[in-house]
Design a protein around this nucleic acid. Sequence first.
DNA 1: AAGGTGACTAACA
DNA 2: ATGTTAGCCACCT
Length: 109
Amino acid sequence: MKRTFTQKVIDIVKRIPSGKVMSYAQIAVLAGSERAARAVGYILHNIRDLSGIPWYRVISSKGYITTTCKEHTHITQKQLLEKEGVEVIWDEKKRMYWVDMERYNIFKL
DNA sequence: AAGGTGACTAACA
DNA sequence: ATGTTAGCCACCT
């Protein structure tokens, strides 16, 4: 039974430690398709049952929270991250939440 | 089975 | 610098 890209993505996301974040692009690379960042977002957006999947630890490569989901809003995402000790900044200019990738990206520091 | 859809990004203007 | 554009690609219908 061959593991699909979706399955790999889910496994990788589940593996992100609490208090850390990863970008869509990084996940795409680990899942074996380095240019599929957009597909990763699409997949996360369409997962039926998000329970057990720390979807909120996935953000854009620049550190912005780009969620558009009505069920699990970007507000929810900010709160879940803060609960894990991640500092989330409101970028008034861009009107988006932002987290410092240098501090919280799983591959940094 | 072919065409549409994004929780993306790097590259432009 | 800041906003826009255009490839990208796995999934869904």
